[in-house]
Design a binder for these strands. Structure first.
Lengths: 194, 194
DNA sequence: GACGTTCTATACCGATCGGTATAGAAGCGG
DNA sequence: CCGCTTCTATACCGATCGGTATAGAACGTC
């Protein structure tokens, strides 16, 4: 009942996601958003609440649409394949020509004026969730004899995600995909096997 | 001649540097700056020009005071020591208790509203300068037989700086110094020797 | 076709953004 | 003490920030 909205909320959210991805949370203004989404401010606030809620929805969409590879990589049979798939997945997302460069999470992790403290906390928390999940996967690998008995799963998880975060900065700075792929190959030499 | 200024410009610049370091370029407002520096806006503009010039001066001071280890590391005798010293130096600066977390350059590299495009360009350029210098050092090492003949100096330089950028994100996210030191040790396993 | 509901358009809100005009206070050489 | 210069304090500038009040337009229901 009532007047139907004249825009597709999903399309609009996707547009917002891309803006936040490219310009960060604080670097993206409401006017930027409404202009690109092709809607007016009351429509934005009526549909998405406010800027912070909109960002959180965009973040969730980002994880679902662009970070899905992470959770499927965890299901790979051996630790080395898990690590390699994760790194390749990150690089692919960060350097896709049709995507903004870098990583929405890493870009947002650095923007931290006092007003955006809550956003920053959320971002850090999302990173921790991924890191913990990867560490648990590596613990399992260690139990299964898939990683050496003297290896430290937490350290390895931190290592892999640090590489991913570093490549995000590289991608934001204009590094090419092939450059970063070779970098992943170098990093993987550190990864213990069997 | 004329009335002498009532504050120490160097102290004020240091304060500005720490603010930019912690909150990024756009996350730091003029009011934040004047409050922390203990001076008024006309004094700030009279002494430092404007916000962008102040940031550039802070950036220069940052490189001189906190990134000096980079250039002295380049003078180490072998490539492996160069790489290791650079990584340890970055981690030390990024996790020093009396410093803000992370890296001023990396934090600023991600904040990119339309208004800060020039700052972003400068930041990317500073990263490239360091990366090129390191690549040249590795080229020399290759000529000197210090690195394998089939190694790629540019890729190795990118690898080292990617680790440094990744650890900056980790440090901004609250990782401890020892955690990151162990991470450097893992990364260094990838580094070719002799 | 009137009604209640939901969306849209315009115009506006106080607060803050980076930056500055103006006037007075503090030092110098004469 | 006097200019002259330089810094400081207050008060202000237009623009933009995130967010909203109000009125009208577009639907389904009765």
């Amino acid at each position: 009942m009532g007047r139907p909205r004249e825009f597709d909320a999903d399309d609009a959210l996707q547009t917002a996601l891309e803006l936040f991805w490219r310009k960060g949370y604080e670097g993206t203004s409401i006017t930027d958003l409404t202009d690109s989404m092709g809607i007016t401010k009351p429509s934005l606030y009526g549909t998405f609440g406010n800027k912070e809620e909109l960002f959180r929805m965009a973040l969730q969409r980002y994880e679902e649409h662009y970070m899905a590879f992470f959770w499927s990589a965890l299901e790979q049979p051996d630790a080395r394949t898990v690590a390699f798939d994760i790194l390749r997945g990150f690089v692919q997302a960060q350097t896709e020509a049709c995507n903004p460069g870098g990583c929405l999470v890493v870009n947002a992790a650095s923007s931290c004026s006092d007003a955006a403290l809550e956003i920053h906390k959320t971002i850090v928390e999302r990173i921790q969730v991924g890191q913990k999940a990867l560490a648990r996967r590596f613990e399992r690998a260690k139990r299964e004899g898939d990683l050496p008995a003297d290896s430290n799963p937490e350290d390895l998880a931190r290592f892999i995600l640090t590489i991913a975060q570093g490549t995000a900065v590289q991608a934001s700075s204009g590094a090419g995909r092939d450059d970063v792929y070779r970098l992943v190959d170098i990093a993987m030499k550190s990864f213990p096997s069997s």
